[in-house]
Design a protein around this nucleic acid. Structure first.
Length: 278
DNA sequence: CACGTCACCTGCGTGC
DNA sequence: TGCACGCAGGTGACGT
């Protein structure tokens, strides 16, 4: 789930408060707790503990779907994968220590009594503590909302991977960072491009439309604080045009939204607005 | 190298 | 009601 807009929403909340929790900027780490070993991808927990204690949160940023928390000269990098979520909450209340919840995998305790909790039912999420972010971010493609990502850059990528279908290409984090299954389907719908079209047969005009569609769905996602999955991403208001709307009416043309499988991912599209041939 | 498939996990909805 | 099955917002390892 969490794709660029959801991660951006979470990062903003960590910076300035929101989503029911306080900001973590300026807070000092007192201790930590690791409930599921594999959640910590690097380094081993013994080393991790020594490095993180007493560090202060200086910055919180995002790159692709990664949350990057700078603690002095080191970075805590978090990837939520499918079901990860973060909470900032009080450790102790009038009843004593607030119990951790089911699926809480990792906790940072701050010296002001707040705690930072990583919850993840499916255990796919990962956390790293590194001094060089290149270790994690080296293979990421451009940020789709960064000025360095241009229509020309997108068209070049389509040409460079001409034999892949456009859906698989947009999901590839080496090509563009931050887009996942929801926003891919939404961007292709907005652009009127069928998910199975080969990247190489998308012409420059369509490519430019796709470029603006990608930016527009991501910006709308951010503006709405993420997607409408109350289940995990509390409060998101982004409304789907095609995602999870199989069998329902296309909001543009009234045709019936279809669902197919593309590269093992559920893929939603409008057969009228997104013809396979052109 | 580039691309496709599978494994990693748990929970939920569906259909029998 | 119970249960087996398929599916889920992601990606890295492995095979062709």
């Amino acid at each position: 789930m969490p794709e660029l807009p959801e991660v951006e929403t979470i990062v903003k909340a960590l910076r300035q408060g929101g989503r029911g929790g306080d900001a973590i900027l300026g807070k000092r780490v007192e201790s930590s707790y690791l409930a599921w070993e594999r959640t910590l991808a690097y380094p081993g927990y013994e080393v991790f503990k020594e490095h993180i204690n007493n560090k202060v949160v200086d910055e919180v940023n995002r790159r692709g779907k990664y949350i990057l928390i700078r603690l002095g000269n080191e970075y805590l990098a978090i990837h939520l994968r499918m079901t990860g979520d973060l909470r900032v909450e009080t450790r102790i209340d009038e009843n004593g220590e607030t119990p951790l919840r089911q699926h809480d995998r990792f906790v940072l305790y701050f010296d002001d009594g707040l705690r930072f909790v990583f919850n993840d039912p499916r255990k796919f999420g990962r956390i790293w503590l590194v001094d060089d972010l290149r270790l994690i971010l080296d293979n990421l493609g451009p940020e789709p909302l960064d000025p360095s990502f241009t229509p020309h850059a997108l068209y070049e990528s389509l040409q460079n991977h001409g034999k892949r279908n456009i859906k698989a290409l947009l999901l590839d984090q080496k090509v563009i960072a931050g887009i996942g299954n929801i926003y891919t389907d939404e961007a292709l719908f907005a652009a009127g491009i069928h998910p199975l079209r080969l990247a190489g047969q998308i012409d420059p005009i369509e490519s430019e439309i796709l470029y603006h569609s990608i930016q527009s769905v991501l910006l709308e996602g951010i503006r709405r604080n993420g997607a409408s999955f109350d289940w995990v991403y509390r409060g998101g208001k982004f409304e789907f045009q095609v995602y999870q709307r199989e069998g329902q009416t296309c909001k543009k043309c009234g045709a019936t939204i279809q669902k197919i499988s593309v590269g093992q991912r559920g893929t939603h599209y409008c057969p009228m607005c997104q013809p396979i041939l052109r």
